[in-house]
Design a protein around this nucleic acid. Structure first.
Length: 234
DNA sequence: TTTCCCCGCGAGGAAAATCT
DNA sequence: AGATTTTCCTCGCGGGGAAA
């Protein structure tokens, strides 16, 4: 494929992303300060004007523990890591948690910087011809996410091969079967974290093999460990 | 108080199981 | 086949108590 050499100034990029209400967009400089943010992000942060965000770091615009998590992630990205299609929960002040697929990577160029794009998880495409058979697999997940569940078994339920199930799932739900299962488990865990059950019990109840695996997965998708999430929400 | 121990929790390595 | 996730396990930390 021939590369087309077009350079889009950041400001223009920002304006383009302003038009996307379900996509969060930002650029950050090497010290993690926002240099460009789209209005979607500004609004979700509970602010009115872009200038309230630009120049600040995640630490300054997110609740304390959350901001810290973003700082850590940003550092890894600045060191060259690329994050693609990562299933995440975004927590904003005064906003119900939202599921997103996140893309983040360092930006080429003189000074080190990074770009991040998160798109909200859309509604499943219920008109897709495969929806019906996937429905059965999804129902199984919903009923049994608290137990060990193998994708292979789900494929059998949907009467397709594993490979086929992956493709259909992405098409209809924008998620792989594994991601959907994780989503169900973490959602349940977030609910249970409002009670005072122990962290280990919650992990167990949500289908994680042990507390360690639970905390690890939870932190990876929510950004903070279970204990901090609980503290954050009370 | 101070010391000691137990617990709950988080982090992360290594190897095996599973998924993409 | 290659990448990711899970499992199993160990470690360290800090918050209670209980015991001294």
């Amino acid at each position: 494929m021939a590369a087309i050499d077009v350079t889009i100034p950041p400001g223009e990029l920002q304006a383009i992303f302003d038009a996307l209400p379900d996509v969060v967009f930002f650029l950050k400089d090497h010290e993690g300060r926002y240099t460009h943010v789209n209005l979607t992000l500004v609004r979700r942060l509970g602010m009115k004007d872009r200038s309230e965000v630009v120049g600040k770091t995640a630490l300054q615009v997110f609740p304390p523990r959350l901001g810290g998590a973003y700082v850590v992630q940003d550092r890894r990205v600045l060191d060259g890591e690329i994050i693609e299609n990562q299933l995440e929960v975004h927590l904003y002040p005064n906003r119900t948690p939202g599921w997103c697929l996140t893309f983040k990577r360092p930006l080429a160029g003189g000074r080190r910087s990074l770009i991040g794009i998160s798109r909200d998880l859309g509604q499943p495409d219920s008109r897709d011809s495969a929806f019906g058979r996937l429905q059965r697999a999804v129902e199984t997940m919903q009923a049994h996410y608290g137990e060990p569940l193998r994708v292979q078994a789900l494929a059998a339920i949907a009467e397709v091969s594993v490979a086929q199930l992956e493709r259909l799932f992405k098409r209809v739900f924008q998620l792989t079967p594994q991601q959907m299962l994780t989503k169900l488990r973490i959602e349940a865990a977030m609910r249970l974290l409002h009670t005072d059950a122990s962290i280990a019990d919650i992990g167990q109840a949500c289908g994680f093999s042990d507390q360690s695996a639970f905390a690890r997965q939870f932190k990876a998708t929510v950004g903070v460990p279970p204990r901090d999430y609980r503290a954050l929400r009370r």
